[in-house]
Amino acid sequence: MRTAKLSKHYGPVRALDQLDLEVAAGEVFGFLGPNGAGKSTTIRLLLGLAQPTAGTAHLFDVPAADVASAHRHLAYVPADVALWPQLTGAEILELLARTGPGTDRDYQAELVDRFALDVNKPARTYSTGNRQKVALIAAFATRARLLILDEPTSGLDPLMEREFRTAVREARDRGQSVFLSSHQLAEVEAVCDRVAILRAGRLAEVATVSDLRRLHRTEIEVSFTGELPDLETMPGVDTVETVAPGHIRFSLAGPPGPALWALVSADIATLSVREPSLEEIFLAYYGEAIR
């Protein structure tokens, strides 16, 4: 899947601006961004549900607009799953299997079991989570080469969330690519190989999760018995805070050697080094705008 300068404007609003993205076969790709950043717009353009204002999107080297070809290898879970209220779960799974890109019925039955979905109920009675389960089961049970999942776990409980992560890994093991738009940063951290961060319709970053961490500051907390060395002037050290007498916290970018050497002289009692979570990285990208 790749896009080139993909843009979508709604009047003066630039919902998506010049997005260049490439997802390789067999990759689990996380797509992050706050509400209104353009994640769902991107997915609608990829699916050919909306036409780009400018730029191109290709799926398997087929233009995204050629849906009859492109969708032969694709399965999709919308953010807000709407189902025909009078059909039961089993009937909807049958419909999607018969009209979709080809389904592994045995795996489908297994997924119904694992996600604990009562397929004999009409969709009218399903909660948000159950509707998501129907769409997820239908998508994971396909042998499509690309799964596009738009915030697929927002209504799932932690047990089902775990099943979801297992299903994503199984998909990757089968060689399927997964394009996962999500707010659940822990989930993205757990399953994604690479992550794109979208901000106000523009791409802010594309990197592996570990590279993202490296780009960001590590937080170090130290308690000591000796004299506090002058850390403020050291390269890479920032925001030194005194938590309590003999107990400081500071953030660090780059190699930790020099700062640690300086602290040795202060007789370290305890030391904790914490890498930033994706959540903190995420907040670092967007937080400034809010504060």
């Binding site: 070809s69 969708h71 799953v81 009209t99």
Partner: peptide, 20 residues
């Protein structure tokens, strides 16, 4: 109404044109 209600989306994600 199926379109605005989002029910068509899953069918449109299948291998067929919307026109069809």
């Amino acid at each position: 109404a199926d379109e605005t209600g989002g029910r068509l989306t899953l069918l449109c994600a299948g291998p067929r044109t919307r026109r069809w």
